[in-house]
Design a protein around this nucleic acid. Structure first.
Length: 815
RNA sequence: GGGGUGGUGAUCUAGCUCGGUUAUGAUACCUCCUUGACGUGGAGGAAGUCGGCGGUUCGAAUCCGCCCCACCCCA
């Protein structure tokens, strides 16, 4: 190691390629080791990673590397998520098209183009961060849009459909008129803005009195199902059971009390329409009203309102408002702040439309899922609450079909005669929108008048929520039923689910739900939930605000190891990290320090040629090391890499480099043969032993620099070694109670010389060391160039400096 | 509106479960130092009313109550 500094740009990628060539991390179920499976979150390949992805996945890789060194065979596939709305929205933006206006095949090709490009960028970051996934060969990396994966999604659907876990229903749902699809609740964002609240004049049929209703959506007047007021509202109590007459349309609408009406909102009386917002949907459902929907999937008025048919919502609003105004029905207009539900994928305002969609049952499984939440282990523990809290609020089943293109197709053909949904056999991948059905006659009516393929796709989470099944069944993308049966013979399907805290309610939730429905057991034994990497103000990194920081640049500058260790050392697991480049730079200096310690140690022979006799200083540092390793393991075992990162850094700098190496230099060089060969050999032995163990303990965190050093010293990879065992480092722990005195005493001597403006190698004529440090006397003598150690104060000359240590002992030096 | 997490020197962070000497560590900063790995180094220094207010207590960063602020998720 001739270079004075570690150069990640030069070494890292070479090492990564070496690992790949050696197939170091390939999954081999025949290895005889217990298998440990990690359900890697497939990175979503619509946009490149910012620092968050890089740091999050680094943590996941640390789990894999630690478990590997603890003797497990690691199932840890690399993957890419390539289904769903975000990619379609991205394609529409990039190619300036609208999905429904280009041929389906063409549109899919556009999506693929983006997916391939972004996927490459993400995989490249994985390489320069040194991830130890089973393989990075393109054929080994699984993609959620590959045939094998989609076929698995479809076969689980077919199974659940036959088990009556899936049903079709025509319920009002969130609908994006731009994406032209139903979307789930958790795909909705809220946009704050303003809208105008109109006070509109209605009439009460029975009494003829005027009724003023506030609404922001006058265009929905023809869709009103009921008019409500708060039951406590004395202003309207007398209207119960009476009838309101709408302006212009003259429809007769029942008036009812309902707690949903807020007395202080507008006039306190409001119209409930099909459908203005989620509250309207609720009330229609609750009162079992017959809805009269007036908006179609294009966001236009239907023939239910002939006067305005074909107008877009906004146009209709304008037109109706105009007419209301002309007839004097509008009394007041107020500009009010409002939170608009919007499509989280495209940003368009969401409407509520009734559409026939497939639903997967989940409400009846909530008690079981709560049981799983109890028994399953979360790291960190408090993240469990996020899921439990969600389980307590779920009230409807999961709508799983989407009217989109880039996704797994709903594998159903409908009989042209009886419209019966015909499902194929599970196994192959089906594309009903373009393929002929794999059967000729209808399973219900027996006729062969032809079939209509379903054109819909699944919600992306339908694919993602079986990832743990896919990886257990397809190591290196090759189907292996034996492996699956072996893994599935346990009480859970997969060992660990690592993921971000933001998708506990989606990915984790849906996976647990489906694991239960398909295999009647929890999908995971452990869930590892990370916080976010945010910008320096603590806000989400955002490309549009310019606050996003991209990992490539940082890795180029400071190396993959630095970025990884930074993520581990910055905060304990589960906390957010505020990204700070200055501190990242500090980490890169520390990496260099490790390298230079190794450079120093490797300048001495690694195996003592003759006999050796461990000196107290040697036993001391080995004892300290043993304690540090024990502490690190405590953190590693709960996947909180902040603990080993901090403990190891502290040991490396504060004890090994600053104290032990300085103490032992004289003995290791032994220039004037003040030490015996046995003593010198012991120094060489200890230096190498500590380095060796330190490197292993650091390996899961900083795989490049550690492997570079380890290969240089031992000619093999550190990553196939076992994690060090603290009780094997030294037989009996010794002298660790002296650490504080030792540090204090050394520091006082250094400070004294410094205060005297003397170089640190200035000889000390005579000294009295603290009594307890007597065991280290020979090493301390050379360390501080003390010419004579005294035991009595009277032996000292006049020019003396006397210190009293914290523990009351004396340190006296005389120049 | 509901739930979650957090607020500790310039910046980030440990400690809080179980109250008790001088509040941990890192980065940045200032001063000094080329000693046979490392100036991407070493030594030292300065820097905090532990978000605010109130309570419990001999004693509170830690326990209790209220409030404020930030972020995440949900309605």
């Amino acid at each position: 190691m001739p270079e004075r500094t570690y150069n990640p740009q030069k070494q890292d990628i070479n090492l990564f390629n070496t690992w790949q060539k050696e197939k170091l991390f390939h999954f081999n179920k025949e290895s005889g080791k217990p298998i440990y499976s990690i359900d890697t979150p497939p990175p979503y390949a619509n946009a490149p990673w910012h620092m968050g992805g890089a740091i999050h996945y680094s943590g996941i890789d640390m789990i894999a590397r630690y478990k590997r060194m603890k003797g497990h065979e690691i199932l840890f596939p690399m993957c890419l998520d390539r289904n769903g709305l975000p990619i379609e929205v991205q394609a529409e933006k990039e190619f300036k098209v609208s999905m429904h206006e280009v041929p389906r095949e063409e549109f899919l090709a556009m999506c693929k183009q983006i997916l391939d490009r972004v996927g490459d960028m993400i995989l490249n970051i994985c390489r320069i961060l040194g991830f130890s996934n089973n393989s990075f060969d393109w054929d080994d990396v699984y993609k959620t849009d590959q045939e094998q994966y989609r076929a698995l999604t479809q076969s689980t659907f077919i199974k659940l459909f036959k088990d009556n876990q899936i049903y079709e229903d025509n319920r009002p749902n969130n609908y994006c008129t731009r994406c032209k699809t139903t979307i789930a609740d958790n795909e909705i964002d809220y946009r704050s803005g303003n809208h105008i609240l109109y006070d509109i004049k209605f009439k009460v049929k029975e009494t003829g009195e005027e009724l003023i209703i506030s609404t922001s959506r006058p265009e929905l007047i023809p869709a009103i199902g009921v008019v409500i007021y708060n039951p406590k509202d004395n202003r309207y109590k007398h209207l119960e059971g009476k009838t309101a007459v709408t302006p212009i349309f003259e429809d007769e609408i029942p008036i009812l009390p309902h707690h949903y009406a807020k007395m202080e909102f507008g006039t306190g009386i409001l119209m409930v329409c099909a459908y203005g917002d989620s509250g309207d949907v609720q009330i229609f459902r609750e009162l079992k009203l017959n809805p009269k929907p007036i908006i179609n999937t294009d966001g236009k008025i239907t023939d239910a309102v002939p006067e305005f048919e074909g107008l877009k919502i906004k146009e209709a609003k304008k037109e109706i408002t105009k007419q209301l105004e002309e007839h004097g029905y509008i009394l007041e207009k107020v500009d009010t702040a409002h939170n608009f539900p919007t499509c989280s994928r495209c940003g368009n305002d969401v409407e509520f439309l009734a559409m026939p969609e497939y639903y997967l049952k989940q409400v009846e499984y909530l008690p079981k899922l709560k049981e799983y939440a109890d028994t399953m282990k979360f790291f960190p523990d408090f993240m469990k609450k996020v899921w439990v809290n969600w389980l307590n609020t779920v009230s409807i089943d999961w709508p799983i079909s989407r009217r989109r293109y880039y996704g797994t197709e709903v594998p159903i053909w409908y009989c042209k005669k009886c419209n019966h949904p015909n499902l194929p056999k599970p196994g192959p991948y089906y594309q009903p929108w373009k393929d002929d059905p794999p059967f000729d006659t209808c399973q219900k009516c027996g006729t062969s008048e032809g079939f209509e393929g379903d054109e819909r796709t699944f919600d992306t989470w339908m694919d993602s929520s079986i990832s743990e099944i896919y990886i257990s069944l397809h190591p290196h993308n090759k189907r292996d039923d034996d492996l699956f049966n072996q893994l599935n013979s346990r009480d859970y399907i997969c060992d660990i689910r690592p993921q971000g805290k933001d998708i506990v309610r989606t990915w984790l939730h849906y996976t647990m739900l489906r694991g239960h429905q398909l295999y009647d057991k929890p999908a995971f034994n452990h869930a590892w939930i990370s916080g976010h990497v945010v910008d320096r103000k603590g806000e989400k990194m955002s490309k549009s605000k310019g606050t996003a920081i991209y990992p490539e640049e940082m890795i180029e500058k400071y190396g993959g190891d630095s970025v990884r260790l930074y993520g581990a050392i910055e905060a304990s697991h589960g906390s957010d990290i505020r990204f700070n480049q200055q501190r990242l730079q500090g980490i890169s200096k520390f990496i260099n320090k490790i390298y230079n310690i190794a450079r120093f140690v490797s300048s001495f022979p690694s195996t003592a040629s003759g006999e050796m006799e461990l000196q107290p200083a040697d036993e001391w540092i080995l004892s300290e090391l043993s304690q540090t390793i024990a502490e690190s393991i405590q953190g590693y075992d709960v996947y909180d890499f902040n603990v080993p990162a901090k403990a190891l850094r502290k040991f490396t700098i504060d004890l090994f480099a600053s104290q032990y190496i300085e103490m032992v230099k004289g003995r290791a060089y032994n220039r004037d043969e003040a030490f015996s060969e046995k003593e010198q050999n012991a120094a060489h032995y200890t230096l190498h032993k500590v380095l060796n163990i330190m490197i292993k303990a650091f390996a899961p965190l900083v795989p490049f620099v550690t492997d570079f050093i380890y290969r240089g010293l031992h000619g093999k990879s550190v990553h196939t070694e076992n994690f060090p065992d603290p009780i094997k480092i030294i037989k009996e722990k010794k002298f660790t109670e002296l650490t504080d005195v030792l540090l204090e005493s050394n520091s006082l001597i250094w400070k004294f010389k410094k205060d005297m403006k003397l170089p640190l190698n200035t000889p000390i004529k005579k000294a009295i060391l603290p009594k307890s440090l007597e065991v280290f006397v020979l090493d301390l003598k050379t360390m501080h160039t003390v010419e004579q150690i005294s035991s009595e104060e009277s032996e000292l000359d006049s020019e003396i400096k006397k210190f009293i240590l914290v523990n009351g002992e004396k340190l006296i030096i005389s120049l």
